[in-house]
């Protein structure tokens, strides 16, 4: 038996694939939490900078990016769950 085959069989026997999956899911969930926190912070900043159009524009752009990233993150999470 080759080394690779041996490692694969150990992974299968110990069910380490799901462990790897769990770790990835945890990582994505963590990232999504950070993104949501950032989104909340941006909303607060938007209120503070209501009169500053330049800053407002920047913050709105960040919000759009974060919205896309959260959407992508959720999709990745769904795929991992499926």
């Amino acid at each position: 038996m080759g080394v690779k085959k041996f490692i694969d069989s150990v992974i299968e026997f110990l069910n380490l694939d799901s462990f790897k999956m769990l770790s990835k899911k945890k990582s994505i969930k963590n990232l999504l939490r950070q993104l949501r926190n950032r989104r909340a912070k941006i909303y607060r900043k938007l209120k503070e900078n209501a009169d500053n159009s330049k800053k407002k524009k920047e913050l709105l752009e960040e919000l759009e990016i974060i919205a896309i990233q959260i959407k992508k993150g959720k999709k990745i999470l769904d795929d991992l769950d499926a």
């Binding site: 990582s27 990232l31 896309i68 990745i76």
Partner: peptide
Amino acid sequence: NNDAKEMHQDMVINEDDIQHILEKK
């Protein structure tokens, strides 16, 4: 060192997303 490095790279917006944002703007 992150397990989800590849997925993080997937989360950075792509050409279609950029197009979408720029069209909106």
